[in-house]
Design a binder for these strands. Structure first.
Lengths: 153, 153
DNA sequence: GGTGAATAGTTAAACAGTTTAACTATATGA
DNA sequence: TCATATAGTTAAACTGTTTAACTATTCACC
């Protein structure tokens, strides 16, 4: 690729990814902000999808230290949204699951987020948005490899 | 669009945007984390590009309240990276500019981020990444409209 | 079987970023 | 001129984060 074109693409990408992220978080917060922070919603979504998970797994997925997860889970457990259960076979491990209340709140918030994302996605051609998401997924894979590569050095 | 397809696209989009954002922030932090937080880097970039801006403008661009900007700018001003100058015509207004030190630090960090983004972008076909960014920019515009629409209601 | 190293998670202190509400100072316009 | 709007700051309270030290448990291997 031509050097100038690459430079232009970098500038456009850095700029647009910043803008979309800030605006999207703002809009999501507008939907769920009275009930959950955006991070708490992501945590709820992760546990909901996996049914059950550990702090280590969350720390990995969220790219933060385990103590950051402990803090978030503490707050959510105090609110009765998440439950901790020790593994009987390996008593170091604590499984995190949603309580009934956590599940209900998740469903409510998720519905709002779905409607928001739907109202945006449907403004595109099916072909265009499909291609976009496919490339986006390739990008995610490249970032995973990049991280593995950096850790391997 | 078919309802099931829309649902699948929503799920894929929500999932991939979360992953890419977390991984990207992690990689950027790996590059600049000793010098600046990611938010501070974005602030530096914004002021660098505009040459001069106000707190209100930053609060708008970052989708946060002005007091959040005051806090960040305070820290960066204490470190000698940013300078405050009152407007003589309208003495309510404070212009923010980079100091020489702020500029130098920005350049150093920006170079590292550029190299990182370049190493990722160049793994794509020029056609694919151009189409991707173009759609991304459309998405940004839709979000701007969405926000305007919500405020207008 | 016992011991040293690794693993899972928590705690505490410190800090960055955020919101809300109250505040100062200045400008506008009726 | 006085009420209202605007730009920015302050203080308190909170969320999320890191680092370092800690507890409890498991595992490897001699």
């Amino acid at each position: 690729m031509d050097k100038d074109i690459v430079q232009e693409l970098i500038d456009r990408y850095v700029s647009v990814s910043f803008q979309v992220h800030k605006k999207a978080e703002y809009l999501i917060k507008g939907q769920i902000g009275d009930d959950l922070t955006n991070d708490q919603h992501y945590i709820l979504r992760y546990i909901h999808d996996k049914k059950e998970c550990t702090s280590t797994e969350l720390a990995d997925a969220f790219e933060v230290n385990k103590s950051a997860i402990t803090a978030i889970i503490n707050r959510m457990a105090e609110r009765g949204l998440i439950q901790r259960t020790r593994d009987d076979n390996d008593r170091r491990v604590v499984y995190l699951t949603l309580t009934a209340e956590g599940n209900t709140l998740y469903e409510t918030c998720q519905e709002k987020v779905q409607l928001l994302v739907e109202s945006i996605i449907t403004q595109f051609d099916e072909a265009e948005i499909t291609a976009f998401i496919t490339t986006y997924e390739k990008l995610a894979q490249i970032l995973v490899n990049k991280k593995a590569e950096e850790l391997g050095e």
